[in-house]
Each structure stands twice: as C-alpha cells, then as structure tokens.
C-alpha cells in the first residue's frame, strides 16, 4: 500500500510504484478532473501541483510523490469560494470544450503563486499547456486581469 496526500486528505492505494500519478488519480481515486491528453508530458492536460510545483502527472510515477502534497483541480477551490483563477476563467468565459482547462488552470495557479504579477511574456513562456479549441486569447486576458490584481479577475460581460 502506498500512502498519498491528495488535496489535504490521506489516501492509500495498492498499485505498482511506477504507475503514473495520473492513473492513480483517475482510476483508483475517481478524481476525474485531471485529464489524459498525450501520456508523454507534452500537452499539460494532466497538470497537478506537487508541493506547489506544476507537475505533469502522466509522467510522474506515484512513487515520486510519497510524502509530498498533491493538489488537483478538485482541491483548488476553497470551502466557500472558488480559487481566483477559477473565478477569472468563468468571468472571461475561457473554456470552450474545457478538456485541457483543469491542467491550464493548475498551471496558471502555480505560476501566480510564485509570481503574482507575471508580465505578458512571462505568462506566454510559463503556460505551455496545449489547447485545441483555441482559447489562447482568453487565457491571456484572464491571466492579465489576475496579474493586474483585478478583483475576481475582471470579466467580458461588463458592458
């Protein structure tokens, strides 16, 4: 049995130590928000936080997170309020199909925790998650609003 700490809760799973964290989350723990997109760390749909670092869970063996704190999209919001990135994503209507967005949001949250006011260039460089629908413009808008400290990340429906 491997002992994990996910979203502040202890879990025990009976899997091979080289099982990628992604599949422990999805198939063992039914935490289905974290997505499979490529399996090779290219697309970022599987991004979670491991001790606060944005981490591609599809290429992270579960053995590498023992004793560490894992946070998934399900654990991002507080008990009473959404995370500011989630609020901004809603206000800017960022998602289209939405499949890549949990990973995108986790990458955004990790970036902002390290650097609350990233420049446009820093946002472009740090956010290398892939999106097929083409939400790029709104990811940038939502991030720019968060970086500028707008309460609830501004929004598109103000007029």
């Amino acid at each position: 049995m491997l002992k994990l700490n996910i979203n502040g809760r202890p879990h025990q799973v009976d899997v091979e130590a080289d099982t990628p964290l992604l599949w422990v989350l999805r198939d063992q723990l039914q935490l289905l928000g974290t997505k499979y997109g490529c399996g090779v760390g290219e697309c970022g749909a599987c991004t979670v936080h491991v001790d606060g670092e944005a981490t591609r869970s599809c290429i992270t063996p579960v053995s590498a997170v023992l004793g560490k704190k894992v946070r998934t999209i399900e654990g991002l919001a507080g008990k009473k309020a959404l995370h500011p990135v989630q609020r901004a994503w809603i206000a800017h209507e960022v998602p289209q199909c939405g499949y890549c967005q949990p990973g995108m949001i986790m990458a955004a949250a990790a970036l902002l925790e390290k650097n609350p006011k990233p420049s446009a260039a820093q946002i472009d460089a740090a956010m290398d998650n892939l999106c097929r629908c083409g939400t790029h413009q709104r990811v940038r808008e939502a991030m720019a609003a968060l970086a500028s400290g707008e309460p609830s990340g501004g929004g598109r429906h103000g007029s």
């Binding site: 289905l32 959404l82 809603i90 998602p95």
Partner: peptide, 23 residues
Amino acid sequence: KSQHRFDIPDKVLGKPVFGVDAA
C-alpha cells in the same frame, strides 16, 4: 445577448462531464 455558457462552471471545477469521465 452575451449570456454565460451553462457548461463553463463545471468545466472550471473539473467536474466529470466528459465521455472519458464515465464512472
């Protein structure tokens, strides 16, 4: 009028709404 899409909040929360999320 621009109305907020119904499906966005669940998608932002990581709710299991997609085909691959069948459980």
